[in-house]
Amino acid sequence: MSSDATLFQTTSARTALALLIGIGSGVFAYLIGMPLPWMLGPMIGNTIAAILHAPIAPPARLRPIVIPVIGVMLGSGITPEVLDAIGDWAISFLVLPPFLIVAAGASFLFYRLIGKYDPVTAYFSAMPGGLNEMLILGAEQGGDEKRIALAHASRILLVIGFVALFFGLVLGVTSGGRGGAVWVGLWELDLTDYAVLAACAVAGVYLGKVLRLPAAAVLGPMLLSGIAHFFHIVDVPPPTVLVIAAQVVMGTVIGCRFIGASVREVGHDLFLGFFSTVGMLITGVGFAAVVAALTDTELSQAFLAYSPGGLTEMSLLAFAMGGDIAYVSLTHIVRIVIVIFSAPLVFRWLGRGG
Rank of each mutant, 00 (worst) to 15 (best):
V243S: 09
V234A: 11
I91R: 04
G273L: 10
F258G: 06
A16V: 09
A198R: 04
M134Q: 13
V339M: 08
I21K: 04
L304H: 02
M314C: 00
A195F: 04
M250L: 15
Y327H: 14
G71W: 07
P55Q: 07
L197T: 10
L52A: 05
G179W: 00
I136C: 13
S329E: 04
Y123D: 12
L197P: 04
A16E: 10
G255S: 00
L100V: 05
A201Y: 14
I233C: 09
M34S: 02
M250V: 15
Y194A: 01
A13Q: 12
E81S: 15
I148N: 09
L207C: 02
T240Y: 10
L137M: 15
G138L: 14
V337K: 01
P221L: 11
S342C: 15
P119Q: 05
I160L: 14
S25R: 00
G105M: 12
E140A: 11
A18D: 01
F271Q: 14
F167L: 06
G177Q: 07
V218C: 06
L316P: 03
Y306A: 03
G284P: 00
T297A: 14
A215Q: 11
I70M: 15
R61Y: 11
A305L: 00
V102G: 08
S315W: 12
A261M: 03
R348M: 09
L223V: 13
I67R: 08
L74G: 05
T79S: 15
S125R: 13
R63H: 05
